[in-house]
Lab assay of single mutants.
Amino acid sequence: TTVKLGDIKVTFDNPEKAKKYAQKLAKIYQLTVHVHGDTIHVK
């Protein structure tokens, strides 16, 4: 599962960890989390 934020891409083996990371980023940057299959976009 890949978390994308602009040019930053972080890949996790564990989808749950990816989701938590995405939510953490979203909170920090006051953005929202969008899940598209294996990719989680923070924008």
Rank of each mutant, 00 (worst) to 15 (best):
H36M: 14
L5F: 15
D38I: 07
E16I: 10
I8T: 07
I8D: 02
K4D: 04
K19T: 07
T32G: 06
N14T: 10
H41T: 13
H36S: 12
T1N: 04
I40H: 02
G37L: 06
A18W: 03
T2E: 05
G37H: 05
G6D: 04
H34R: 06
I28N: 05
K9Y: 13
K9W: 13
D7A: 14
I8S: 07
K24R: 12
L5Q: 03
D13N: 11
V35C: 07
I28V: 08
V35N: 05
Q23G: 05
L31Q: 03
Q23M: 11
K19Y: 15
K9I: 14
V33S: 02
F12A: 00
H41W: 13
E16S: 08
K17W: 09
L31I: 04
G37R: 05
K27D: 13
F12V: 01
I28T: 07
L5P: 02
K27W: 11
T1Y: 14
V3I: 06
T39D: 04
G6V: 04
T1F: 13
L31W: 05
A26C: 15
K17A: 13
A26N: 03
L31R: 01
G6C: 13
K20S: 08
I28A: 08
A26L: 04
H34N: 05
G6R: 07
T2Y: 08
L25R: 00
K20E: 12
Q23K: 10
T1L: 08
Y29D: 02
K43T: 14
T11N: 08
Q23Y: 13
L5G: 02
Y29S: 03
I8C: 14
V42N: 02
N14V: 05
P15V: 10
L25K: 01
V33M: 08
K43E: 10
E16L: 09
D7Q: 14
H36L: 13
K27V: 09
K20H: 08
V42G: 01
L25Y: 03
I40Q: 01
G37I: 04
K17L: 12
K9E: 14
K24L: 15
V33F: 07
D13S: 13
Y29R: 02
K17Y: 10
V3Y: 02
I40V: 06
F12T: 00
G37V: 04
Q30Y: 08
A22C: 09
T11Q: 09
K19A: 11
K9T: 14
T32R: 05
D7C: 15
V10G: 01
K17G: 06
T39E: 09
V3G: 03
Y21A: 04
V42M: 08
T11K: 11
Y21H: 03
D7P: 13
D38Q: 09
N14I: 05
N14R: 06
T2I: 12
I8P: 01
T39R: 03
N14A: 05
H36Y: 12
I40S: 02
L31K: 02
V3R: 01
Q30T: 06
Q30S: 11
A22L: 06
A26Y: 03
Y21I: 04
P15Y: 14
A26W: 04
K4N: 06
V35K: 06
V42I: 10
D38H: 10
Y21W: 13
L25C: 11
Q23N: 11
Y29L: 10
Q30A: 09
D38L: 08
V33G: 00
A22D: 00
A26K: 04
I40K: 01
T32V: 13
Q23I: 11
K27G: 08
T2K: 05
V3H: 02
K4P: 02
G6I: 06
L25T: 01
I8R: 10
Q23C: 15
V10K: 09
D38A: 09
G37F: 06
V10A: 04
A22I: 07
K19S: 08
I28Y: 12
D7W: 15
H41C: 12
T32E: 09
K4I: 15
H34C: 13
K20V: 09
K43A: 12
K17R: 11
T1W: 14
I8K: 10
V33D: 00
H41Y: 14
N14S: 12
K9M: 13
F12E: 00
K17V: 11
H34E: 13
V3T: 02
H36V: 15
G6M: 07
K20F: 08
K27P: 01
K4S: 08
A26D: 03
K4C: 15
H41F: 13
K24G: 06
Y21N: 00
T39C: 12
V33Y: 07
I8W: 15
A18S: 01
L5V: 12
K24Y: 15
K27Y: 13
T1M: 11
K4Q: 14
Y21D: 00
K20I: 10
K43C: 14
K4W: 15
P15K: 09
L25N: 00
I28H: 09
V33Q: 01
T39N: 04
V33I: 13
V10R: 08
A26E: 04
A18D: 00
V10Q: 04
Y21V: 05
Y29W: 08
K4V: 15
N14E: 07
H34L: 10
Q30E: 08
T32N: 07
T11M: 12
K43M: 14
I40E: 01
K19F: 15
L31F: 07
A22P: 00
T2A: 06
T1G: 04
I40W: 05
V42C: 04
D38C: 12
Q30W: 07
L25W: 06
K4G: 04
K17H: 11
D7F: 15
P15Q: 08
V42R: 00
D13W: 10
D38T: 10
Y29T: 04
F12C: 07
T1R: 03
L5K: 03
A22Q: 01
H34I: 13
Y29P: 04
K43I: 15
V33T: 05
A18F: 03
K27Q: 13
A22M: 04
G37P: 03
K24W: 15
A22R: 01
T1C: 14
K20M: 10
T11E: 08
V33A: 04
L5S: 03
A22F: 03
H36W: 10
T2C: 10
K43P: 03
